[in-house]
Design a protein around this nucleic acid. Structure first.
Lengths: 193, 193
DNA sequence: TCAAAACGGCACGTGCCGTGCCGAACGATG
DNA sequence: CATCGTTCGGCACGGCACGTGCCGTTTTGA
């Protein structure tokens, strides 16, 4: 626990977010109350409500502060390999605490709270999607992809099955699964003529 | 409102589920409390807790009682057309109240409550997935699909992007979007040689 | 006929919500 | 160094929904 004196402004904001992640990892998102965060951080509830309008907003900021979310694409010239490397990194992040379970809970929260949904899209989903599309565009310009292929659609076909498994069936995401999706996307499922 | 006398057992169960759907549609899942359902249905809370262990379980049963979920596949001999027809029906269901918003909330609940997640998979997701895989298997046996294509993977690639849009970006699902996914899956995204 | 079960209604303790108020500590201004 | 507005921790409040008891009544089925 950091010294409680001289904690103000940005320092305090970071301390609260750290406490949120730590406490969320310990007791789970459903039992994570603003009261509990305030108590653990040795902070008045006002101090939290002054910064975040809801539990979801607090958690989103806390997760983004991990900034492990800097999932940038390599560009080795081989699209398939680059996609593979980046998505492997992404599912590794989603597969382990504290990011994995808390991110899952945040998506859950986004199903009730439109503000959380919008913020999540704007600050995490869309930036990641944009990176994917940008990398695909480079590949298309180099003739590695069909020139008329909808790149946003390609992004959705890559991400969709992963989120499906993450949110719906809730089975662990594996590198092998990613590889099979990539293979399928690059080959289609028509029989060879 | 039905007569309050002589309501017991199965009748009462159905009345509670109807009230849940109705009230859920009116005020939204987040404000849908068991207390509210009990009050609206003119029922003691015990009567609900005796039947369902949680709000999520109650909602799952209520949604399944709509049994519009009988989304069976046609079999005209053309896989792509059959998939198209069935998935169009599915997104129509997911796109309109009361099923759409409440189903979305239920998936949200499944991110916190493992029991709800398991029940949702067992009683809705898996049966639908099985139907899809079965239809794909027929097609593969008839040579319309690559003999070595993983059919469970194909199912995930079909469903994933839809759930991604439904849960994450939360934009409306359109027939056109379904068609583009199908086209992409059947052609792959490699450039023509 | 009669005991067991299911029911509606009510009340309770608990936890957390979001807000208001207080006095202390801080930081910028002059 | 003095002053004043802001930020802070602490506390208390009313409100809501939770899940569980208890009561008296009604229905069921042995």
């Amino acid at each position: 626990m950091t010294d409680k004196r001289n904690r103000r402004g940005a320092d305090l904001t970071e301390a609260i977010m750290r406490t949120t992640l730590r406490l969320g990892e310990e007791i789970g998102y459903s039992r994570l109350s603003i009261e509990a965060v305030a108590a653990r951080a040795g902070v008045g509830k006002h101090t939290i409500y002054r910064r975040w309008p809801s539990k979801g907003a607090l958690l989103l900021d806390s997760l983004l502060s991990l900034h492990e979310a800097d999932l940038d694409y390599p560009d080795t010239g081989d699209v398939a390999a680059d996609l593979r490397a980046q998505i492997h990194a992404a599912i590794d992040l989603m597969g382990r605490p504290p990011f994995g379970p808390l991110f899952q809970a945040l998506v859950g929260e986004a199903q009730y709270d439109p503000h959380v949904a919008a913020a999540l899209n704007e600050r995490f989903i869309a930036p990641q999607a944009d990176k994917t599309v940008a990398r695909l565009k480079t590949a298309r310009d180099q003739g590695q992809l069909s020139p008329d292929f909808d790149l946003n659609l390609a992004m959705a076909i890559l991400s969709g099955p992963l989120y499906f498994q993450f949110l719906i069936t809730q089975e662990p995401l594996t590198h092998d699964y990613v590889d099979r999706i990539l293979t399928a996307l690059f080959t289609g499922m028509r029989p060879p003529p």
